Simulated scan of single mutants.
Amino acid sequence: MENTSKDLIKLIQHKYANLSKGQKLIAEYIMAHYDKAAFMTAATLGKKVGVSESTVVRFANALGFSGYPSLQKALQVLIKNKLTTVQRISMDDSFIDSDATLKKVLKADMENLRATIEEVDCRTFKKVVDSIFKAHRIYILGLRSSTALAGYLGFYLDLILDNVKVVSFGMSEIFEQLLRVTKDDLVIGISYPRYSRRTLDALKYVKKQGCKIVGITDSYASPIASISDHTLIARSNMVSFVDSLVAPLSLINSLIVAIGMREKKEVTQYFEKLEDMWDTFNVYEGKDKPTNF
């Protein structure tokens, strides 16, 4: 089993004495600048410290990893909850060029989608859909950058179901909005780096009430994964100071469609009524009644 990121720095320190001269240069750089090293290729890291790419690969092997990508992934997990916005901005100078930025961000989002497709657990996904239909009430919680995801999921589930509540900052405190949760309810918690402590505290509270929890997050190393009854993973590797929410949004779309298709007849009837209402009140462009000026 490969090493996890939990004690990665301690591992490097422990192995340091037995490393070659070139590998020690890599170790020293990573211990001092792990936030930057996590987003460097093996070739870039080697060039930075003055060693070959093959030396970087052998360094990863010396730590017990199958290759540099595994070490890099461990470094990224290590920094996710520690990297400040300022550090994110400074970690990659390639974003200075606007053309390069466009392609790099799009490629990064595509990579997050690819990794999510490969890693998604279809059995867990089905269990989550089942849990949503079994729940007496459904609470959706996502704070900070995850607020957009929670609001999007809540908007569409509220069109399909009649027992959905989005928990958010407002007149009522977060915990006040969760005061009536019971063991028959379901809380969907959405949390992405930098992980909101408020989200974790709120989920710990509902867990004590016996409430079921579905976690939507970026990895099983996420703080909410350990307390969730079911965890859905959608990758969100950071791109500069912006969180990549493309894969999480796609996962949420999948949930919405799966739920809607299970209740297709009822949803169709409901949307027919909605369409009539939207036409009556001119909610959308394209169907306005003629206006005389």
Score class of each variant (00 low, 15 high):
residue 270 Y to T: 15
residue 206 V to W: 03
residue 162 D to P: 05
residue 5 S to H: 15
residue 19 L to S: 12
residue 236 S to M: 00
residue 146 S to M: 09
residue 116 T to I: 02
residue 82 K to W: 10
residue 264 K to E: 14
residue 289 K to M: 11
residue 82 K to I: 12
residue 33 H to I: 07
residue 260 G to K: 03
residue 187 V to H: 03
residue 168 S to G: 05
residue 157 L to N: 01
residue 144 R to F: 09
residue 170 G to W: 10
residue 207 K to H: 12
residue 63 L to W: 06
residue 136 H to M: 04
residue 183 K to V: 04
residue 46 G to A: 04
residue 262 R to E: 12
residue 33 H to A: 08
residue 20 S to W: 11
residue 290 P to I: 11
residue 292 N to L: 15
residue 51 V to Q: 07
residue 81 N to Q: 14
residue 117 I to V: 09
residue 195 Y to K: 04
residue 27 A to C: 13
residue 48 K to A: 09
residue 256 I to W: 12
residue 148 A to N: 03
residue 129 V to N: 02
residue 217 T to I: 04
residue 89 I to K: 11
residue 185 D to H: 02
residue 261 M to H: 02
residue 291 T to A: 14
residue 12 I to C: 10
residue 228 S to V: 02
residue 230 H to G: 00
residue 7 D to G: 06
residue 251 L to T: 02
residue 168 S to A: 13
residue 215 G to H: 01
residue 243 D to R: 08
residue 203 L to F: 09
residue 171 M to G: 15
residue 144 R to T: 11
residue 152 Y to W: 08
residue 225 A to W: 04
residue 77 V to H: 11
residue 90 S to W: 09
residue 269 Q to H: 12
residue 101 T to C: 11
residue 84 T to G: 11
residue 87 Q to W: 09
residue 47 K to E: 11
residue 35 D to S: 06
residue 76 Q to C: 05
residue 135 A to V: 02
residue 12 I to G: 11
residue 2 E to L: 13
residue 230 H to E: 05
residue 17 A to G: 07
residue 190 I to V: 14
residue 184 D to M: 10
residue 56 V to A: 05
residue 257 V to E: 11
residue 116 T to L: 01
residue 29 Y to I: 09
residue 99 D to P: 02
residue 220 Y to C: 04
residue 202 A to W: 03
residue 170 G to Q: 05
residue 134 K to F: 06
residue 166 V to T: 14
residue 258 A to C: 02
residue 9 I to V: 14
residue 129 V to A: 01
residue 209 Q to D: 05
residue 122 C to S: 15
residue 8 L to Q: 13
residue 105 V to D: 05
residue 106 L to K: 12
residue 29 Y to F: 15
residue 55 T to E: 08
residue 109 D to A: 10
residue 143 L to Q: 02
residue 160 I to N: 04
residue 112 N to K: 01
residue 30 I to P: 09
residue 28 E to D: 15
residue 87 Q to V: 10
residue 109 D to M: 08
residue 27 A to E: 11
residue 16 Y to A: 10
residue 67 G to A: 12
residue 147 T to V: 06
residue 153 L to N: 03
residue 230 H to L: 03
residue 68 Y to R: 00
residue 71 L to E: 04
residue 96 I to L: 13
residue 146 S to R: 06
residue 20 S to I: 13
residue 244 S to D: 12
residue 58 R to Y: 14
residue 67 G to L: 08
residue 221 A to F: 13
residue 37 A to E: 00
residue 137 R to Y: 07
residue 28 E to N: 14
residue 231 T to R: 03
residue 34 Y to W: 07
residue 86 V to Q: 14
